[in-house]
């Protein structure tokens, strides 16, 4: 099979308007992935499926990932030469940068006909609040149907052109998206014999004055 870099080149030549980014993977098996832009994702998916050299006819796994906003502290060091002739000093400068959050969908593609894979493609939403639509790939691979519904349920990504986009696991009246990192669980604390950490904090909140009874 071609390497992902070769596939990247071919796709870039074929779809010049699309923005394609190669996402490296530092883990030992180095399953790198290709970040597509949402506007061209459907065309590229069809191309990947039908291209005779690739024939990625089997979409195995669809995963939603939540990347909340993250504050990154970068330290830059600069050497400053003392104009008075003293030894050069190193100055550390800390800059804070806010990395914008996004929701991501990862598709693992394999070929059952040619028995190779995986080719991993990813899609990202603009942010985590209002730009959360992505094109559905269910018309290309039907195996995405339930998995995209699950991601809609648990992460809140809205897939356009999905044939039946409803909540999969939680009930319809449910409003939150529990797999997001900032989800707060409903408070149904129950007594535990050895509370610690966050359970202890919850216990204190539920029983504000246990000391009065103990005495």
């Amino acid at each position: 099979m071609e390497t992902l870099a070769q596939i990247h080149e071919r796709l870039a030549a074929r779809f010049p308007a699309a923005t394609l980014t190669l996402v490296p993977n530092p883990a030992p098996p180095a399953q790198a992935s290709l970040l597509l832009d949402a506007a061209h994702a459907r065309e590229i998916a069809v191309f990947l499926r039908d291209d005779p050299a690739l024939r990625l006819d089997y979409c195995s796994n669809v995963t939603g990932v939540d990347w909340p906003e993250k504050e990154i502290v970068e330290t830059t060091r600069s050497v400053q030469i003392d104009p008075a002739g003293g030894p050069p000093r190193t100055i550390e400068q800390k800059t804070k940068r806010l990395q914008p959050g996004c929701l991501e969908v990862v598709y693992h593609l394999y070929s059952m006909a040619l028995k190779h894979g995986p080719v991993i493609i990813r899609l990202r939403t603009g942010n985590r609040s209002d730009q959360i639509t992505l094109p559905s790939l269910t018309p290309v691979w039907r195996s995405c149907e339930f998995q995209e519904r699950e991601i809609f349920d648990l992460f809140g990504i809205v897939f356009t052109d999905h044939p039946d986009l409803r909540r999969l696991l939680m009930w319809d009246e449910f409003t939150a998206h529990p797999m997001r990192k900032d989800y707060v669980e409903p408070d149904d604390y129950e007594w535990e014999p050895t509370p610690h950490d966050d359970v202890l904090a919850k216990a204190k909140a539920h029983y504000p004055a246990p000391a009065a009874k103990a005495e």
Binding site: N25, P26, A27, Q31, S60, N61, T63, V65, V106, H108
Partner: peptide
Amino acid sequence: KPGEHYGRIEGPKGEIGFYLISDGTANPYR
């Protein structure tokens, strides 16, 4: 170490796989 991986085997019911994203901590990120 940080990275991600999808590992799969042939279970009795079909392909069972685990997709893990590590951010270098003791818990998987995804």
